[in-house]
């Protein structure tokens, strides 16, 4: 078996982004009108049965489409992958309650198509007429890390012209009321990243905000040739075997909230990269392209 002794990296350009943070009282309006589409019109009431994370996810993509230099881009064959965190909790709890009261006949036919892990990406693909791959990733506590990992995989392969990565979650995670909503004071958050391979971005002459996403796969050997066994944080809660690189200390703020704040900053204010240690030992960083280039040159 071959032994890899170097770290692999892959990079892509984040050509546009959109962030939506919607408190509960804002969601009904977003559901009715998630934003203006630069593509085909979104059918009225298209989001009527959608999970809340679908609503904010679509709104974030629409915002990114309008905000950045991708406005004139042909999205026909773009892909869309979405990594929601615990989609369907509110709708699921309401369905379970109805099932308890009325049996199988009371189960909504919308629960599976609209509240599953694929639902966010599918609704965005459909509403914006994008024919590239669409699927959901994660769904659980590590959804952000899983979404970033898979998005980089996709963009580094095939002839995909571009990819929307849509990251969503509640903050904090709500306790359902069993009626399809919650009494928890919470915000439904979405970050949409319009991603291009660097080569494509350069050939298109686009350098919108000069932001690069880099994923580093750690080496399997340390510098002395000793094998580094990479074990996920979940697999090794005591840290006995040691991951290659520990994620930075966090302040208790969810990483997606930190990412949203980083993106909301003005380009000049982004002095430090946003960084996320992946559970399996890899690392994702989002930084100004110039910063990465300076690092390479050094």
């Amino acid at each position: 078996m071959s032994v890899r002794s170097f770290a692999a990296t892959c990079e892509c350009a984040v050509a546009a982004h959109g962030v939506i943070a919607a408190p509960l009282n804002v969601l009904p309006a977003l559901r009715e009108q998630p934003g203006d589409s630069v593509r085909r019109p979104i059918p009225p009431r298209f989001l009527r049965h959608s999970d809340e994370q679908t609503v904010v996810g679509l709104a974030a993509v629409l915002k990114a489409m309008h905000a950045g230099p991708l406005r004139e881009t042909c999205f026909d064959n773009w892909g869309v992958v979405a990594a929601p965190r615990f989609p369907g909790r509110l709708g699921g709890a309401a369905t379970f309650r109805k099932y308890g009261q009325g049996g199988p006949a009371a189960i909504s036919p919308h629960i599976i198509p609209q509240n599953s892990l694929h639902s966010v990406s599918s609704a965005i693909s459909i509403s914006l007429a994008m024919h590239g791959p669409n699927f959901g990733i994660g769904g659980g506590p590590e959804a952000l890390a899983e979404g970033l990992t898979v998005a980089m995989t996709l963009l580094d392969s095939s002839d995909l012209p571009g990819l929307w990565l849509v990251l969503t979650q509640w903050s904090p995670e709500p306790v359902p009321d069993g009626l399809g909503s919650t009494q928890t004071e919470t915000v439904c958050l979405a970050v949409a990243l319009g991603m291009l391979r660097h080569a494509k971005q350069n050939s298109a002459g686009q350098d919108p905000e000069g932001v690069t996403l880099r994923l580093t796969v750690p080496p399997r050997l340390d510098r002395s040739g000793r094998q580094v066994r990479l074990v996920s944080a979940a697999a090794d809660p005591a840290g006995q075997t040691g991951a290659a690189e520990e994620p930075p200390e966090r302040s208790g703020v969810p990483p997606l909230v930190e990412l949203a704040r980083w993106l909301a900053g003005k380009p000049g204010e982004r002095s430090a990269p946003w960084s996320l240690g992946l559970p399996w030992g890899g690392r994702v960083e989002l930084a100004r392209t110039n910063d990465f280039q300076q690092t390479k040159a050094a």
């Binding site: 198509p113 694929h118 990406s121 990733i137 994660g138 990479l230 996920s232 890899g282």
Partner: peptide
């Protein structure tokens, strides 16, 4: 297992 682990879904 010590590599990346993800769930994916497309129905």
């Amino acid at each position: 297992l010590n590599g990346p682990a993800v769930s994916v879904a497309a129905a």
